[in-house]
């Protein structure tokens, strides 16, 4: 099963990478932002499997984005690979430190505490007038190990970078799901005490999940900052986190691919809604979410599971 899934993922990667050559430039940049956001959603899926839903995941997204922007501004580094590595590291570090506090919380308290932490970062950034406060500031055009493309070439390079990082993270996360620590997510959600009777610390297992979600969230923020070309404190605001949770529910937790499909579908729905009804796009967005929950309770991912004709759904 896992070999087949990996093969399927690899071929999807090739198809998506090739599709960019045929797609119009505006669609490539839309997909770039969608897949960058999908990384945050990937982290949310890791947490959601264990029953945890943070309303402040934008914290890591924002940390990753500001790391990229500040590396260029203060240190003068514009290499995309270096910026990504540093962003992932710093976001992971933040998640590790914050994790000592957050890992003790569950349910709505977990959600609200993570929200409070992301809003404190928001407040700090708003207060930092040298970084443009809420207006934010621009991100230098990234280079790729010496290669410095512009215009369409830059768009494609960023898209392929996002795709490559996305594929690596998706592979890493699905590998993690098959390890003992990863597979214990659903038992944690169902009943923690049973896990502790096995002699494992639930808080440690959750701490690891928080770090994983933080790292991929930071990478997502870093890639988003590069493709938008601008960062602002709004990236840490609770509505940004709310948007990520929205996409997670839309996608469903059934597979890692769902994060990417869900995120792309969300961006397309949003942009079409803005195009068709500029004053009433929130209504379309809300209706889509509502209908998804009512008629596709397992998210978009479940459609593909059904198409695949998976007979073993629901079986352990």
């Amino acid at each position: 099963m896992s070999a087949r899934t990996n093969l399927a993922g690899a071929s999807a990667f090739v198809v998506l990478a090739a599709a960019a050559l045929a797609a119009p430039a505006w669609f490539v940049s839309l997909a770039t932002i969608a897949f960058a956001n999908a990384l945050v959603v990937l982290g949310l899926i890791v947490l959601w499997r264990a029953g945890l839903v943070p309303f402040g995941q934008a914290l890591y997204y924002c940390v990753g984005a500001y790391t990229v922007a500040l590396l260029a501004r203060w240190v003068g580094i514009t290499d995309a690979f270096v910026m990504l590595a540093v962003s992932g590291l710093i976001a992971g570090l933040v998640a590790y430190v914050v994790g000592f506090l957050l890992a003790r919380y569950r349910e709505i308290f977990f959600a609200m505490l993570s929200l409070a932490l992301s809003m404190i970062l928001y407040g700090v950034l708003v207060k930092t007038e040298t970084l443009g406060s809420t207006d934010g500031f621009g991100v230098a055009t990234p280079t790729f190990a010496g290669y410095a493309p512009h215009r369409e070439a830059l768009g494609l390079a960023l898209y392929w970078l996002v795709l490559a990082v996305g594929a690596l993270c998706a592979f890493a996360v699905s590998t993690y799901f098959r390890t003992t620590a990863g597979a214990l997510a659903i038992p944690i959600r169902d009943n923690e005490i049973r896990i502790e009777f096995l002699g494992l610390s639930v808080n440690d297992l959750i701490h690891l999940k928080l770090v994983i979600a933080g790292v991929v969230g930071g990478l997502g923020g870093a890639l988003a900052a590069m493709s938008i070309g601008h960062v602002d404190p709004n990236m840490s605001y609770w509505t940004t986190s709310g948007g990520f949770v929205f996409v997670t529910i839309l996608a469903g937790a059934s597979s890692v691919a769902a994060a990417f499909v869900g995120s792309l579908v969300f961006e397309i729905v949003r942009t079409v809604a803005v195009d068709l009804l500029p004053g009433f796009w929130q209504m379309i967005l809300g209706s889509v979410l509502l209908l998804t929950i009512l008629f596709l309770p397992e998210g978009l991912g479940s459609v593909f599971a059904r198409l695949r004709g998976a007979p073993d759904r629901g079986a352990p």
């Binding site: 839903v53 209706s287 929950i293």
Partner: peptide, 24 residues
Amino acid sequence: LVYGKDEVVIVLVTYAVFLILEDV
């Protein structure tokens, strides 16, 4: 229609309704 679902899913239902009501 959604009682009995995951608490977080219900939060999202109310979020969706909130988005719709903003435009209403």
